[in-house]
Amino acid sequence: MEGTVTVTSGDWESLGEPASLIRRVVFIDEQQVPQEEEWDGLDSACLHFLATLQGEPVGTARLLPDGHIGRVAVLSRARGKGIGYQLMQAAIHAARDAGHTQAVLSAQLHALAFYERLGFVAHGDVFMDAGIRHREMMLAL
């Protein structure tokens, strides 16, 4: 699956349907995150990002009003193509444009190096979230 990647942003009403399908596949199906933890009731307050590859939705992320970036997910068939990086760049720019002085996220341990390449720095102890080991990370904006 090669081609042009486009990242758009919008509210849950406009991007929720494709974003929720991606999150269901990645988090609920692949990673076994309980549905009640994935659907936390915060989506309507977030700015959402949707990555498409040749017009097909393949990745998503969200920016909470407090500057937290979360729910970063790319479908398995589209991984390794820089889509996660493009989603994160869009979320970081949106956080900066919203006036945040830092972006914060909870990274799954296997993804620490990915976020470090974007400039995030891990801090604090490892903690469990939805049965998966995480660490908090911050990026000064």
Score class of each variant (00 low, 15 high):
Gly3Val: 03
Thr4Val: 11
Val5Asn: 07
Val7Leu: 04
Val7Pro: 02
Thr8Glu: 10
Ser9Ile: 07
Gly10His: 15
Asp11Cys: 09
Trp12Ser: 06
Trp12Thr: 09
Leu15Glu: 01
Leu15Met: 11
Gly16Trp: 12
Glu17Cys: 08
Pro18Tyr: 14
Leu21Val: 14
Ile22Glu: 02
Arg23Met: 13
Arg23His: 07
Arg23Asp: 07
Arg24Asn: 14
Val25Thr: 14
Val26Asn: 04
Val26Arg: 01
Val26Ile: 08
Val26Asp: 03
Ile28Lys: 05
Asp29Gln: 15
Glu30Arg: 07
Gln31Ala: 05
Gln32Val: 11
Glu37Val: 15
Trp39Met: 13
Trp39Tyr: 07
Asp40Leu: 12
Gly41Gln: 11
Gly41Val: 06
Asp43Ala: 12
Ser44Trp: 07
Leu47His: 04
Leu47Ser: 07
Phe49Tyr: 05
Leu50Phe: 13
Leu50Gln: 01
Ala51Cys: 14
Gln54Ile: 04
Gly55Ile: 06
Pro57Ile: 12
Val58Tyr: 09
Gly59Cys: 10
Arg62Trp: 03
Arg62Met: 06
Leu63Ile: 11
Leu64Pro: 02
Pro65Lys: 13
Pro65Trp: 06
Asp66Asn: 13
Gly67Trp: 06
His68Leu: 08
Ile69Val: 07
Gly70Trp: 00
Gly70Asn: 03
Arg71Phe: 03
Ala73Cys: 14
Val74Ile: 11
Val74His: 02
Val74Trp: 03
Arg77Tyr: 12
Arg77Ala: 14
Arg77Leu: 09
Ala78Asn: 06
Lys81Ala: 06
Gly82Ser: 14
Gly84Phe: 02
Gly84Ser: 10
Gln86Phe: 02
Leu87Ile: 03
Gln89Gly: 05
Ala90Lys: 01
Ala91Tyr: 02
Ile92Pro: 02
Ile92Arg: 02
Ile92Gly: 00
Ala95Arg: 02
Asp97Phe: 06
Asp97Trp: 08
Gly99Ala: 13
Gly99Tyr: 05
His100Asn: 14
Thr101Cys: 14
Thr101Lys: 15
Gln102Ser: 10
Val104His: 02
Val104Cys: 00
Val104Phe: 01
Leu105Gln: 05
Ser106Gln: 14
Ser106Leu: 03
Gln108Ser: 05
Gln108Phe: 10
Leu109Arg: 06
His110Lys: 13
His110Leu: 12
His110Val: 13
Ala111Arg: 04
Ala113Tyr: 01
Ala113Cys: 03
Arg117Glu: 14
Arg117Ile: 05
Leu118Pro: 03
Leu118Arg: 04
Gly119Arg: 03
Gly119Ser: 09
Gly119Thr: 04
Phe120Lys: 00
Ala122Ser: 14
His123Gln: 11
Asp125Cys: 04
Asp125Lys: 07
Phe127Ser: 11
Phe127Ala: 11
Met128Phe: 12
Met128Gln: 15
Asp129Thr: 08
Ile132Glu: 02
Ile132Trp: 01
Ile132Arg: 02
Arg133Asn: 05
Arg135Leu: 11
Arg135Ile: 03
Glu136Phe: 09
Met137Ala: 02
Met137Thr: 01
Met138Ala: 10
Met138Gly: 09
Ala140Leu: 15
Ala140Arg: 15
Leu141Asn: 04
Leu141Ser: 07
Leu141Trp: 05
